[in-house]
Amino acid sequence: MSVKIRLQRHGSKGKPFFHIVVADSRSRRDGKFIEKLGTYNPITNPATIDLNVDSAVKWLNNGAQPTDTARAILSYKGALYKKHLQGGVAKGAFDEAEAEKRFASWLESKDSKVEGKKENLATAKSDAKKAAFDAETKVNEARISAAAQAKADAQAAEDAANAPVAKETAAETTEEGTEETQA
């Protein structure tokens, strides 16, 4: 029996969510499996991966072959590195404590990289939001000033149209006033 570490698809259309499982290679993709090792959500940025590293290493040592995507996930979470370190312990290159120390330092550096990426994404998102807000404010100010200018132009045109009428009315009243005084 050939055992594979592979992904089992769940989730709705366009919103995938995967379980990382150990399964017989002859079983269907979403069929029965031997053990569930974790989950993988590619929708989030960065992708959310929850993996039982010790169990994955146990299956790798027992001969389970990961698929390409599962291999990338196992590498990302450090399961392949931990297996590599256990091989060094078995050969006598270093002891178990040194292997654990190396793995812990690797995990720490990996976590700092992931946190850095999250912070950069959050900063970029807030910067984009601020730039969009500034652009919208600029457009609104231009729209308000154009409306004020149009209102001022309309008022000036109305005043210009009313001014000759007012002069004619004033002239008519003065003419009528002079006729009345003469009478």
Rank of each mutant, 00 (worst) to 15 (best):
N162I: 08
K167M: 12
D24V: 02
G14K: 10
L7Y: 07
K82C: 06
S27M: 11
F133N: 04
F17Y: 15
L80R: 14
A183N: 13
S25P: 00
Y81G: 04
K32W: 08
S25Q: 07
V114L: 09
A146Y: 08
A72M: 06
Q65G: 02
A93Y: 14
N62K: 14
G11F: 03
T178D: 10
F18Y: 15
A150Q: 15
H84A: 12
V21G: 04
E168T: 11
S12L: 03
E136R: 10
D54F: 00
A170I: 07
A93D: 14
V139D: 08
G63W: 03
E108K: 15
K91V: 01
K167C: 10
D68L: 01
A163W: 07
T178C: 00
N45M: 02
I144Y: 01
V89G: 09
E98M: 12
L85G: 13
I20L: 07
G87R: 11
F17A: 00
Q86K: 09
R6F: 13
A154C: 10
V22C: 00
A93T: 11
D153R: 14
G31H: 10
K13A: 13
G78I: 09
A183V: 13
A132P: 02
P164Q: 06
E176W: 13
Y76H: 14
D134V: 03
K101R: 15
R9A: 12
D159Y: 05
K77T: 06
E179Q: 09
A183L: 13
E100D: 12
A93Q: 11
E180T: 03
E98T: 14
V53C: 05
H10C: 00
E136M: 05
K83H: 14
K15L: 00
A64R: 02
T178Y: 08
V114F: 07
G92A: 04
N41F: 10
G92L: 05
L37Q: 05
